[in-house]
Simulated scan of single mutants.
Amino acid sequence: MITHLDKQGNPAMVDVSEKQVTKRTAVAQSIVVLPEEVLQHLTDGDLQTKKGSVFQIAIIAGIMAAKKTGELIPLCHPLGLDNCKVTIALNHKHEVVIECTATITAKTGVEMEALVGASIAALTVYDMCKAMSHDIVISETRLLEKTGGKRDVKRA
């Protein structure tokens, strides 16, 4: 069932007025694959560029984006997040793993906020590193977990 259409098939925001207020959390992940010429610039688990600390700036960008999700995604409810956290680490394959966790106590979930936060953090890594190489790949963005709504989701 497509939830963003009314009975006539026109776009519509989902009516959440009858839903229960619950604590809702979502975790999304983006993975950025950096080529060797970029990885060579890693120092103390971060990349330093003329624009600044890549991962630190990407964290700020991800949080800012998550807060603006309702402005970016049509028909998405504007939400005042209770919390948003973005973490960035390298995995065993030397890929940049970005996770965004969004939390709210509300009538609707925060999956889109977590996905937007992770996506924009990944795009920020790309933007800040593209002078070193255009062979950077954002390989995936996906929802890892959501709780507090009609049904919980947890992926490995």
Rank of each mutant, 00 (worst) to 15 (best):
M1Q: 09
T3Q: 14
T3W: 14
H4E: 10
H4S: 08
H4L: 13
D6Q: 05
D6Y: 03
D6H: 05
D6S: 06
Q8P: 00
G9N: 05
G9C: 04
P11E: 05
A12D: 07
A12I: 09
A12F: 02
D15F: 12
D15M: 10
D15A: 06
D15C: 09
E18P: 02
K19M: 07
K19E: 13
Q20A: 14
V21A: 01
T22W: 00
K23N: 13
T25E: 15
A26W: 05
A26F: 04
V27D: 04
A28G: 05
Q29H: 01
Q29N: 03
S30E: 08
L34P: 08
P35C: 05
E36H: 09
E36C: 01
E36M: 09
E37G: 03
E37Q: 11
V38R: 00
V38F: 01
V38K: 00
L39N: 07
L42R: 11
T43A: 11
T43L: 07
D44E: 12
G45C: 05
L47V: 15
T49G: 05
K50M: 04
K50G: 02
K50T: 01
V54I: 04
F55W: 00
Q56R: 08
Q56A: 11
I60D: 03
A61D: 00
G62A: 06
I63P: 03
I63G: 02
I63N: 05
A65E: 06
A65R: 01
A65V: 05
A65F: 04
A66M: 07
A66I: 09
A66Y: 07
G70A: 08
G70P: 06
I73D: 06
P74G: 11
L75E: 10
L75Y: 12
C76P: 11
C76K: 04
L81G: 11
L81M: 11
D82F: 14
D82K: 15
K85M: 15
V86I: 15
V86K: 01
V86W: 06
I88R: 02
A89V: 13
A89N: 13
N91D: 15
H94G: 09
H94T: 13
V96H: 04
V96Y: 04
V97L: 09
V97P: 10
I98N: 01
I98Q: 02
C100I: 05
C100L: 10
T101L: 11
I104R: 03
I104C: 10
I104Q: 08
T105G: 06
T105A: 10
T105E: 15
T105C: 12
A106F: 13
A106I: 08
K107V: 12
T108L: 08
E111S: 09
E111R: 05
M112I: 02
E113F: 06
V116C: 12
G117M: 07
S119Y: 04
A122V: 09
T124I: 00
V125K: 00
V125Y: 02
Y126T: 04
Y126S: 04
Y126P: 06
D127C: 02
C129I: 03
K130C: 11
K130L: 11
S133E: 11
H134R: 15
D135N: 14
I136D: 05
S139L: 11
T141W: 03
T141R: 02
L143F: 09
L143Q: 08
E145V: 12
T147R: 15
G148I: 12
G148E: 10
G149D: 13
K150S: 12
R151P: 11
V153C: 14
K154T: 14
R155S: 12
A156L: 14
